[in-house]
Nucleic acid binder design. Structure first.
Length: 228
DNA sequence: TTATGGATTAGCT
DNA sequence: GCTAATCCATAAA
């Protein structure tokens, strides 16, 4: 595969300490980081543009609310590991565990990405036509990874394959990296698609990024923020 | 053993 | 805007 033109910045794995903090802090600072899938001579990479924080046992919307079960045990383990669950009979969703082991079972849900590398592979995984050039390209790219189920499908993420995977190690097939990108502006809104504790502002998005998901709650901006 | 409902998506009206 | 598709973890029995 030819290298992309120009100098793509190196992607460095994000360390364990980054995730050993509260889920709101982790969610906010994950914006602009990169999700990477390495496999059979190819790499998928996409920028994180939308996430949601789930606070653990005190959050009725969180899977960890019911406590530590076989399904949710990764959330209660050490930080920086993948919690993958299956939903509505059709879709997988990816989370990363937060806070040190023994705390509260919190995590961050990945809701939307902006494709950077491996676009054709993502389209194939999604069962969609290869994106073209031209004006339609952004629309076509959006269909690849704007939504939690979509991005999981584009990256080939399944519970069997990826649950419990260490997202801080580039030797994992799936990991989180930093290429130096810094979010210009972040918006915080209510979370999407939940029925319990739906009003709490725990959804973090890159402002003005066209790859964020959801037409529904998306407009209700709660806060702008420049600092982290 | 059976019942229930969900952190979604795509397709149709 | 509305809803079917479709599986699994969990709770109830």
């Amino acid at each position: 595969m030819p290298k992309p033109p120009g100098q793509a910045p190196a992607i460095r794995p994000v360390g364990r300490a980054f995730f050993a903090r509260g889920p709101r802090r982790v969610a906010r600072e994950l914006l602009g980081k990169i999700l990477v899938r390495d496999g059979e001579g190819m790499r998928l990479a996409a920028r994180i543009v939308e996430v949601e924080a789930y606070l653990g046992e005190n959050d009725p919307a969180a899977h960890a609310w019911a406590g530590n079960t076989p399904r949710t045990s990764v959330l209660f383990g050490p930080p920086g590991f993948a919690y993958v669950y299956f939903i509505y009979g059709n879709h997988y969703c990816l989370n990363v565990s937060c806070e040190r082991e023994g705390k509260t079972g919190s995590g961050v849900l990945f809701r939307a990405l902006e494709p950077l590398q491996g676009v054709d592979e993502m389209a194939r995984a999604r069962g969609l036509p290869m994106p073209t050039g031209g004006n339609a390209r952004t629309t076509e790219l959006r269909k690849l990874t704007s939504g939690p189920g979509r991005l999981a499908e584009a990256f080939g993420i399944t519970r069997r394959r990826d649950n419990g995977c260490d997202l801080t190690s580039a030797r994992s097939g799936l990991w989180i990296g930093d290429d130096g990108f810094r979010a210009a502006r972040i918006e915080i809104t209510p979370r999407i698609g939940i029925t319990k504790a739906a009003e709490r502002p725990l959804r973090y998005i890159l402002a003005e990024n066209t790859f964020v998901s959801g037409r529904r709650n998306a407009g209700k901006k709660v806060e702008n923020s420049r600092q982290c």
